[in-house]
Every structure is written in C-alpha cells, then in structure tokens.
Design a protein around this nucleic acid. Sequence first.
DNA 1: GTCTATAGCCAGATAGAC
DNA 2: GTCTATCTGGCTATAGAC
Lengths: 201, 201
Amino acid sequence: MSNQDTEQNILNAATAIFQSKGMDGARMQEIADKAKINKAMLHYYYRSKQKLFEAVFKTAISIMAPKLREIIEKEEPLFDKIRHFTNGYISLINKHSYIPTFIVHELNRNPHILQDVFIKQFGDSFDKMKVQINEMVEKGQIRSIEPEHLIMNVVAMSIFPFVAKPIFKSVLQKDDKEYQELLDERKTHVADFVINSLKIK
Amino acid sequence: MSNQDTEQNILNAATAIFQSKGMDGARMQEIADKAKINKAMLHYYYRSKQKLFEAVFKTAISIMAPKLREIIEKEEPLFDKIRHFTNGYISLINKHSYIPTFIVHELNRNPHILQDVFIKQFGDSFDKMKVQINEMVEKGQIRSIEPEHLIMNVVAMSIFPFVAKPIFKSVLQKDDKEYQELLDERKTHVADFVINSLKIK
DNA sequence: GTCTATAGCCAGATAGAC
DNA sequence: GTCTATCTGGCTATAGAC
C-alpha cells in the first residue's frame, strides 16, 4: 500500500470510530484494528490522537459545507431553493448519517472549534438570502416571517430526524427499513410543508 | 450535611459534568471537585461511574418525559395541543438546555439504553394522537399529512435549535442574548408556522 | 460517613529493531 | 515505513485509618 493509501485508510477507519464513539470514547487501538495496521502507524502518520481527530472533524465539515454553500448561493426563487435544500441535504446526510450527530456533539463539547469557520464561509450568502426573504414579505408574496426562523425551521426539520433517530424510532415504533422510508419521504415533505406555511392563498 | 443532601449534591454535580462532557469525557475527580467532596464519596454513594451516570441519565429522562406525556395525553383540539407543546417544551428545555444534546449523544453512543422506555410510556398516547390527526384530514379540517411527519416536524423545530446552538449562533451571527431572544420567540413562532401549514383557507 | 493513600489497569505515545 | 515492546501518566476503584 502506498503512503497516501495508508493515510487515507487510517482516516477512513478513524472517521468511522470517531463518528460513532466521539473523541473521548474512541480508542487508538480500535482505529488501528479497523485499519488493519499497527497502533504505532497512527502516530507515525498523524502524530497524536488530537491531530487525527482534527483531520476527521475537518473532513466532516468539508463534506457538509460545500453543498450548503452551493444551495444557498445559487440565485433562484426562494421556493426552488427550499426544495433544493431539503432534497439535496437529506440525500447527502443519508450517505453520511453519523456526521450531524458527530458535529453537534463535538461542537457542544468544545464550541470554539468553529470560531469563524461558518461566519467567513456563509456570512455574505446568508445576508443575500435574508434580503430575498424580506423582499418577498414586503411584496406580499409570502407570509410575514423572520428569515432567521425560516432558516432554523428548514434546517431543523431536515437534520434533526437523523440526530434523534433512536428516539423517533422508539416513539414512532418503526424498524430501520420503515424509518429509512420516512427519511426519504422527507426530501419532498419538508419542502411542501414549509412552502404551504409561507404561501398566501 | 445529611446523607440525602450529600447524595443530591453529588447527583447535581454529576449532572453538570456528565451533561457537558458526556459519559466518556467526564472525570470522577471533576465531579468530586464540583460537589466539594472527596472522590471516594462518589463510590460510597453510587458504587461506580456507570451507576452514577445511569442515575443522571434517568433523571434527565424523568424531567423530559412527564411534560411530554402530559401534553400529548390531554384531550384537546390539535391546534391547542401544538401550541401547548411548543410553548411548554421550549420553556422547559430553556431551564435544562444541556439535556437534549446529552440524551441525543448518549443514545447514539448506546441505543439500547432506551429499549422500550418510550414505547411503554407513549405508545398508546401516540396512537390516539394519530387517530386525531387522521380524522381531521378525513374531515377536510386540515391538509393531508402523515401523523409521523407532523410529529417529527414539531419536535424538530422545537428542540433542534438547542442542540445546534453553537452552529446557528455562528451562522446567524447572534450573540448569546440575541440567540436567547430567538429561542423565546419560537415558543409561539413554531406553533404559528405549523398551524399555517396545516390550515386550509 | 469521611478522608488519605494506593492498587491496578488501560490508554496514548515513543524507542528502537528491522 | 512497519513492527514489537515498553514507558508514562491518568483514571476508576478500593483498602483502611479515623
């Protein structure tokens, strides 16, 4: 295996372990076993558990952020944007379902990891979106709503069902297959639900 | 200090530490320091870290569950129920803001903690609520919606802003005071948003 | 019940042979 | 680059004096 393959191999194993157990619960030995290499190799390539964790965390952010950015920055009508967000984001998270829980937990454990990552990346785009929403309200095209709440609503309904999967599965009494079907339905359901609430008929 | 005071004192300290650092990140020494007692006392009263953790976890569930049960079981019109839920639950979580993140993380770490806690407590109530929603759809009083999605929507919009607080604060560029104001607004905003989406006008 | 001291274990990190 | 063996520190848990 080449250096880069080994490095990637380690990162993949570390991602799986860190995302399911968190920084504190993860064990270097377990990561090494998963990567089918020696524990010393982890340190050879990444120096420390902390550095390896940071690599995993940055990778997780880099999977989530560009798609978000793409959807938000694209110039198109608000309702289209909402549909693209719920469809695109729920599909993406489906492929990386551990990421939201992982990010949420690690950020609460240590909020300053973020610092200004998001501000720098999204500040301008969100300002534009706020203007777009406020204009539609003023023109009477949608109900009155604060942009902040609209954004929180859409994001919450899209992501929370992944984060709270064990609770919802239990409360709604669904098995894995049934719950997956619910998640798929939400790609369009959430957008419909939001747009119905905004529309003035 | 009496036995029970000491026991409660330990539980309070453990709650604070476990809820901010999680089971794996918490240190018995830190809990002892916070409770201003000796580390050996923790073991005298709770035998092991695991047992102490379970006490904290059960307390967290027992704070969240009865209110949920109360709101869901009360016989009243659906829209009233939605208003009571968003108002009551957001207020409650405001007083215990670490709990949702704590529960979510620990459940993902170890999903079988739940087992049938929720099913037994809420199975019947949710069935009744499903019937209530389905009847309103059939009578043409609200838009067609699957009860599961409606429940997920309301819960997600109420709870996710607490879980994702560091992210939203950063993205929306709010300080603590401004973010708290947003959370307070949501007690009525979420209910309005949901009811607007359901109404047929 | 409360403390000090310490046993015993396990994890992250490194030394050093190959 | 890759491995084995080992160091070092920190953590849970307990023994035992008071």
